[in-house]
Amino acid sequence: MAETRTLTDHDEIRDWAAARAGKPVISDPAPGMDEGRPVLRIAFGQHAYQDTDEGADHIGGNQIVEWDEWFEEFEKRELALVVSVDVPGQRDEFHEIIRR
Rank of each mutant, 00 (worst) to 15 (best):
M1Q: 09
R100P: 13
I97V: 09
D53I: 13
R99H: 12
W70F: 08
W70T: 12
D15P: 03
H58A: 14
F71S: 00
E35I: 12
D28T: 15
R77T: 14
D28A: 15
P88Y: 01
Q50P: 02
M1H: 07
H47R: 04
P31L: 10
K23T: 14
D34Q: 07
E73G: 01
R5E: 14
E93Q: 11
V39C: 09
G22C: 02
R37K: 15
G36A: 10
F94H: 02
R77F: 13
V65M: 08
D28H: 13
I97P: 01
D57T: 05
R20T: 10
E96N: 03
D34M: 09
G36L: 11
E66Y: 02
H95V: 04
T8A: 06
E54V: 13
V65A: 03
L81N: 01
F74I: 12
D53V: 11
I97L: 02
E75Y: 04
F74R: 00
I59G: 07
V83T: 09
Q63Y: 01
V87H: 00
V65N: 05
A21K: 05
E12C: 07
R99E: 15
H95L: 07
I13A: 05
E54C: 07
R20Q: 08
E54K: 03
R20A: 11
M33P: 00
R20D: 06
A80D: 06
R5F: 04
P88R: 00
H47T: 10
D34C: 04
G89F: 05
I42G: 02
E12G: 04
S84V: 14
I64Y: 04
L40K: 02
K76L: 13
D92P: 03
Q63H: 10
D86A: 11
P24H: 03
G36I: 07
V82G: 01
V83N: 00
E3Y: 01
W70D: 09
L79C: 11
P31W: 05
L40W: 06
E69T: 14
T52G: 05
M1V: 15
E3R: 03
L81M: 08
E78L: 06
V39W: 06
R91E: 10
Y49L: 10
E78I: 07
E69M: 08
T52P: 00
A19P: 03
D92Q: 05
G22V: 04
A18T: 13
I59S: 09
E72W: 01
F71V: 02
K23H: 14
P31Y: 04
D34W: 01
E66R: 05
R77D: 12
D53R: 07
A56P: 02
Q63G: 10
D86G: 02
D57R: 03
A18S: 14
R77H: 12
W70H: 06
G60R: 05
I26V: 15
P29C: 09
A48Y: 00
I98E: 03
N62S: 09
R77E: 15
A19T: 04
P38L: 15
E72S: 11
N62I: 07
H10G: 10
D11L: 12
A21N: 07
E35Q: 10
F94L: 10
D9H: 04
E96C: 06
E54Y: 11
E96M: 05
F94C: 07
F74Y: 06
Q63E: 15
E96R: 01
